[in-house]
């Protein structure tokens, strides 16, 4: 059987809210090492990879590897019924066709359980090779969200160029053009405002803002987000989930003909 108890239950809610517009149905894979999900959007343009390590749960038991197919829309509906401070426990039998979510209030005066029907989902699992990225910029998640949102009102795509001077986000469209540059700032007073740039070689890639904007729905999960880029390879947009794992998104750059 599978059983996992998460004290920070709202973390699960944030994860599902971050991916449900990109991916409709997905398989959650459980093993003794943790709870993971890998899924592409319908058009196979972007990929979501979630990893929650078993040691990040208060209690984690998985007797046999299992894959649980869920409608993320329905899962979001159920998780919406959990209180913000509730402890969430997931339970599933090895051969069952449902997963149960139990919500406990912190004061232990309210307990509820919701059963979600599992579904059979054919999904293609992709191997993501370890990559030596040319540049990795780590910036406040809210800043990344703002850049993507602001540039979306100018154009459909963004050119992200990383040089030793900083990382420039440029967009152009009918309205005109926009450039936003973030510079390394590892001495900001507040840790949550720090920006760091790890540059091995300059790189410039063009991406569809629609997807980068969608990834920004993970903003509530982490103070910072990292963008890792290498020439002609998908960007990795990485939100670290403290003490537990990560939620990563991948998007291939647009290629000049």
């Amino acid at each position: 059987m599978f059983e996992a108890r998460l004290v920070q239950g709202n973390l699960l809610k944030k994860v599902v809210d971050a991916v449900k517009d990109l991916v409709t149905d997905a398989n959650f894979d459980c093993s003794s090492s943790g709870f993971t999900l890998q899924a592409m959007d319908n058009s196979h343009v972007s990929l979501v990879s979630l990893s929650l390590r078993s040691d990040g749960f208060e209690h984690f038991r998985c007797d046999r590897n299992m894959s649980m197919g869920m409608s993320l829309g329905n899962l979001a509906k159920i998780l919406k019924c959990a209180g913000n401070d509730d402890i969430v426990t997931m339970k599933a039998a090895d051969d069952g066709d449902t997963v149960t979510f139990m919500f406990e209030s912190p004061k232990e005066d309210r307990v509820s359980d919701f059963e979600l029907k599992l579904m059979d989902i054919d999904s293609e699992h992709l191997g993501i090779p370890d990559t030596d990225y040319a540049a990795t910029v780590t910036l406040p998640a809210a800043e990344y969200q703002r850049i993507c949102r602001d540039l979306s009102s100018i154009g459909d795509t963004v050119v992200i160029s990383a040089t030793k001077d900083g990382v420039k986000f440029s967009s152009s469209g009918d309205v005109g053009t926009a450039n936003i540059t973030v510079r390394q700032n590892t001495t900001a007073d507040k840790k949550e405002e720090q920006v760091s740039i790890d540059l091995k070689e300059p790189v410039a890639l063009t991406f569809a803002l629609r997807y980068l904007n969608s990834f920004a729905k993970a903003t509530p999960l982490a103070s910072h987000v990292s963008l890792s880029m290498a020439r002609d390879l998908p960007v990795m947009v990485d939100y670290q989930i403290s003490d537990m794992g990560h939620l990563r998104f991948y998007l291939a750059p647009k290629i000049e003909d």
Binding site: V45, H125, G127, A252, K254
Partner: peptide, 14 residues
């Protein structure tokens, strides 16, 4: 408009 490449051409199928 530049074409949007799909991801499976970058990653291997497992």
């Amino acid at each position: 408009i530049l074409p949007q490449p799909r991801l499976p051409s970058y990653f291997t199928s497992e």
